[in-house]
Amino acid sequence: MPNYYLISLLLIVLAIAAFAMAFERRKPQARDLVIVAVLVAIAVASRAAFFMVPQVKPMIAIIIIAGVSLGAQSGFLVGALAGFLSNFIFGQGPWTPWQMFALGIIGFLAGILFRRSPLKTKRLPVCIFGGFSTLVLYGLIVDTSSAMMFTPRLSKEVLLTTYLAGLPFNAIHAVSTMIFLLILAKPMIEKLSRVKKKYGLVES
């Protein structure tokens, strides 16, 4: 019986490492670092703005926006680091690599899909992507990891049950991400492009 958990963990760590090395190789400038760090910190701290509605987390929305305006690579890093750092606050656990990977991939795909696309300025496609990625990418990846943790002998039934059990939470998460993107995406993309000019970050 193969140890799914360890194998997938290894793959995920490799994927994250690959992105990390690619970023390092680029020899990023001070401004690149600042903008990524700022976005990561916003994604993590954003929860504090909704202390009165605790079930709402704007993190994924911000990661998607980061991917859309900074591109796939930065999108991945903002996502993965946001996952990593929020766990520094709430506690690292066996779930950390999976969360990092899921959030990273969302940022990455947002960059691939929208960075150069004319859809970037349209709200609806970004919203739909946000809902879909929260529900399917984030939900499935994280739920699969917990299924693997709970029962190392995976079966279809276990996975299905886990997904079903997680569905309501993932659905709420997806809807809130969509709402955030609906309100936040446009102004925030504008802000980012203004700041990119101010920082002198050229569109590569």
Binding site: A20, E24, K27, L33, V34, V36, A37, V40, A41, L81
Partner: peptide, 11 residues
């Protein structure tokens, strides 16, 4: 990962 660890420290 010098750049990323700096990003982490900054964040």
């Amino acid at each position: 990962i010098p750049a990323l660890s700096l990003v982490i420290s900054m964040a």
